[in-house]
Design a protein around this nucleic acid. Structure first.
Length: 467
RNA sequence: GUCCCCAUCGUCUAGCCCGGUUAGGACACCACCCUUUCACGGUGAGAACCGGGGUUCGAAUCCCCGUGGGGACGCCA
């Protein structure tokens, strides 16, 4: 059996979105699963709507997701190949050659300055009520598609269609089929929205005297709220956005795999190598899936949790850098690097995404943090928090800050001495040091903040509370 | 309007092909446990076979018809 060749063929006419990414992903998975070739082809025949900025975004997004292409435009380590060029805007001569073949064979004709593909069969003029005009209908045999995912699908194509516009530019259906033939594509894996185009494409293959490749139409991704498929205009639709928000690409990829596919058991978080091993076209679902950002966030957290501390800190720093305030100053980035690192390590097991970090760690980098009034009222109403704070403050002047344990032991000793619980110190200390009741472990927080900051903050807090 | 695809908890899904399950898992939600707050983790609860016919001893599973959802009907891709 010959080698599998699949392609992803986006058009750079908009931002790269979730649906496109999953189509690319499924093609890539199938290529890697079968040891085949993954081709990237740029469908930029619509000159009006193309842009180099969008083109670059496609390259960058695929690279970020780890979907490397074996053949296609060269970008980084990807691309190359001898079936190019891989941008349709550079393949005009090839299209003209193929159109000429159809013209010569009597399978295409000119009308209104455009070139039309000619279907074979008995012709009749019919008035189309819906379109309010007379059209020529052709009685053709139904096209039968043995879809790898949907099974047998039949559809009748009954009107000739344009393959070259009157301005001389070839249309999608033509270039798509010509390129797939010229590039030796064996499996077409694409969104279900193309299913009804497939009958046109099969006629074109027949017109060129070439056996059509295998088809696999994958279900669409529906928007999280409201009706319809997800489009680039929808909330949370853009790959770029997840990149910017600091999501882990491996988490997004894992999540996307689960939209319409599963490993056949209860596992959800699984390494990409395992997904490649198990992925196959007949295992893909037939029904559309709704995008759920909550589940993606959960997946992201699961991957974040197992990230080596150094990687996490690097990603955190990168996030802070990319999200500098307008004036360019960032207390977190100006802080001592080792201090920044300790703060992030403390926060890693606590957040669902790095985007939570600036808010989560704000008080570590500024002495000017707000005191949550609701938390204050609750904490200050119970027991004698002021006394606890004074006791702790005194103890911490001599306690070793070398580890969480020494601090923990000190607090435990105080609690035993005064006949109260650990929590009596924990709550009010957290309030004094961070202004809230949410955060990393109190002992870690004290250790990382350091003796000077801790004593100073407790003193200032006591003063502000009229003690 | 025409054509095509699809249909299990709120969401993603297993089970369907090869009829017999207390219809399983995950996210979300709720409760409890753990605990040094918040998370994480653990335990538990609630939550689904779209409707109607048929075939069958027996249907989530096979067939038909509805209904619902989605897609396509461009000299866009």
């Amino acid at each position: 059996m010959s080698q599998v060749r699949v392609r992803f063929a986006p058009s750079p006419t908009g931002f790269f979105h979730i649906g496109s990414a999953r189509t690319a992903l499924f093609n890539w998975l199938y290529a890697r699963h079968t040891g085949g070739v993954f081709v990237l082809r740029i469908e930029d025949t619509d000159k009006e709507r193309n842009s180099d900025e969008y083109l670059r975004l496609i390259y960058e997004s695929l690279t970020w997701l780890g979907l490397d292409w074996d053949e296609g435009p060269v970008f980084g380590k990807c691309g190359g190949g001898d079936r190019g060029p891989y941008r349709q805007s550079e393949r005009g001569a090839i299209y003209r050659e193929y159109v000429q073949k159809l013209l010569d064979a009597g399978r295409a004709y000119e009308k209104d300055g455009a070139i039309w593909f000619k279907l074979l069969g008995e012709r009749s003029e019919v008035f189309d009520e819906h379109r309010k005009k007379t059209v020529v209908k052709v009685r053709t045999e139904p096209v039968v598609i043995e879809d790898q995912i949907r099974g047998r699908v039949e559809r009748v194509e009954d009107e000739d269609f344009v393959i070259v516009r009157s301005d001389g530019n070839p249309v999608f259906h033509l270039v798509n089929v010509v390129d797939d033939i010229a590039m030796g594509i064996t499996h077409i894996i694409r969104g279900e929205d193309h299913l009804s185009n497939t009958s046109k494409h099969v006629h074109l293959y027949e017109g060129f005297g070439v056996a059509p490749p295998a088809f696999a139409h994958i279900p669409l991704i529906l928007k999280q709220n409201g009706p319809g498929k997800m489009s680039k205009r929808d909330q949370g639709a853009l790959i770029e956005e997840y990149q910017r928000r600091g999501f882990l690409p491996q988490a997004l990829v894992n999540f996307l795999c689960l939209l319409g596919w599963n490993p056949g058991d209860d596992r959800e978080k699984l390494p990409i190598a395992e997904i490649i091993r198990l992925f196959d076209l007949p295992g893909v679902n037939q029904s559309n899936a709704r995008f759920d950002e909550k589940k993606l966030a959960h997946m992201n957290m699961a991957y974040l949790l197992e990230l080596p501390a150094d990687d996490f800190v690097a990603r955190a720093r990168e996030y802070f850098e990319r999200h500098r305030p307008p004036d360019g100053t960032s207390a977190a980035l100006s802080a001592d690097k080792e201090y920044f690192r300790e703060v992030m390590k403390l926060s890693q097991p606590k957040v669902k995404g790095v985007e939570e970090l600036p808010a989560y760690t704000g008080y570590f980098f500024s002495d000017d943090y707000p005191i949550d009034p609701k938390v204050r009222d609750k904490v200050m109403a119970k027991g004698d928090p002021r006394a606890r704070l004074r006791e702790l403050s005194a103890a911490l002047t001599t306690t070793s800050f070398s580890s969480d344990t020494t601090i923990e032991d000190a607090i435990k000793a105080l609690a035993a001495e005064h006949g109260v619980g650990f929590g009596d110190y924990q709550a009010v200390t957290r309030l004094a040091l961070s202004g809230t009741n949410v955060g990393p472990s109190i002992t870690g927080m004290i250790r990382v903040l350091g003796r000077e900051r801790v004593l100073d903050r407790i003193e200032r807090f006591l003063a502000s509370q009229g003690a």
